[in-house]
Simulated assay, not measured.
Amino acid sequence: MSRAYIMAFITVIVWGTAFTAIRASLHGGYSPGHLMLLRHVIASAAFILYAMWPGVKFKLPKRQDLLKILILGWIGISVYHLGVGYGEVTISAGTAGLLIGSSPIFTAIIAVIFSKERLDRNGWVGLFIGFVGIALITVGSSGSSFEISTGALLLIMAAIATSIYFVFQKPLFKRYSPIEVTAYVTWAGTLPFFFYMPGIIDTIQQATLEANLSVIFLGIFPSAIGYVTWTIALSLGKASSISSILYIEPIIAIIVSWLWLQEVPSSLALLGGMISILGVLVVNGLIKRKKKKPVSIVT
């Protein structure tokens, strides 16, 4: 197995556990805002320590890249994690994993709009299948056959945000290392979370031990290590091939949620997840460039 696939597999493991750790933190006394603030302060501190480590050469971003880094950080870190954090207040970890697992559907749409890529008839069929799956997950997450929950909509927003982030970060790899790119966007994305600074000390003191340990885990592993390993994987291999590994992330999320919190998605949500993944596979197999070259689909 190549280094790119090893890095991607590590990413899938730590990101798959993140949904359950978020739920554990929320159950243990954290609000979504305080959770995201502390999680990303920990991740940012880890990157600062790395950048200051003796012998490490860490380039500062160029002036012309600052605005792009800020926007990517706000979309890929701030918007994404707020969507996941507030979404998981009412949505189980496994169902959250299924909804985030639909992000390649939105990536395909972004590729069509902003890149020189096109969908043939079968590709549009794949998108339709994917959206049917997303609709079933959304309805199944509400516990009602005719209701769409706010939490599910927030998670869909997060899926769109992470798709935008992974598509538009690619050009930065030409000038910076994967860990530098990850550090920049993490620092940028952490800034809006300081809005939740009031009351953070009281929350830490009143939260359960499990919740505090979960936040530390989220800051070090999914937020720092997971983003670095995924960025390394993208920089080493073809995005269309590497991203296929992320299809097993919802499965890991469901298993960890069941073992840790005894949560299981509804049958309708599970059915929607399978249909959504089918749509993703169809789309990734049938998107083409105008010059008939393989497309790079990122999730």
Rank of each mutant, 00 (worst) to 15 (best):
I204A: 13
K62T: 10
L261C: 05
I156C: 05
L268A: 09
G29V: 13
T138F: 03
W187K: 05
T162L: 09
L234P: 07
F217H: 03
E263Q: 04
L82D: 09
T182Q: 13
A269M: 07
P265H: 09
V228H: 04
L268F: 09
I160Q: 09
R23N: 06
W74D: 14
I71Y: 02
A233G: 08
T190F: 07
D202S: 15
L26E: 09
I225W: 01
Y247Q: 11
G285F: 00
G130C: 03
N122T: 14
F106S: 01
G272W: 05
P265T: 11
R289F: 10
G133T: 02
G285A: 06
I69H: 02
V84G: 06
A46M: 14
A159Y: 10
I105C: 01
V295R: 01
I109P: 02
S78A: 15
L26F: 07
A188S: 13
T299V: 10
L259I: 08
V56T: 13
I13M: 05
S25T: 10
V112C: 13
A135I: 05
F146P: 06
I242F: 08
A183Q: 03
L99S: 02
P192H: 03
W124T: 00
T190V: 01
S103I: 02
P171Y: 05
Y184Q: 03
I200S: 12
G130I: 02
P54Y: 10
I245D: 01
P250N: 04
Y86V: 07
G55T: 06
S177C: 04
M52K: 15
P104Q: 00
W53R: 14
Y80D: 08
Y196I: 04
F47L: 12
I255C: 06
V215Q: 08
I179A: 09
S92V: 09
R39D: 02
L82H: 06
R3F: 14
H40D: 04
G273C: 11
P192M: 02
L49Q: 08
I220E: 03
I287T: 02
I69P: 08
V14Y: 01
L119C: 12
I245T: 14
G126P: 05
T231F: 10
L98N: 03
S149F: 12
I69C: 05
F106T: 01
P32D: 11
T95F: 10
E88N: 00
M36Y: 06
A46R: 11
I156F: 08
W230D: 06
K290E: 11
I100C: 03
T138V: 08
K57V: 13
I275A: 02
I252K: 00
S31P: 06
I200M: 12
L99N: 01
K291C: 14
G279I: 00
T229D: 01
L60N: 10
I75E: 01
S267G: 12
I113F: 13
L60M: 14
A224Q: 03
A24I: 14
S244Q: 12
E210Q: 15
F217E: 03
A188E: 09
K293F: 11
S44V: 04
I242M: 07
L35A: 07
P54Q: 12
L82G: 08
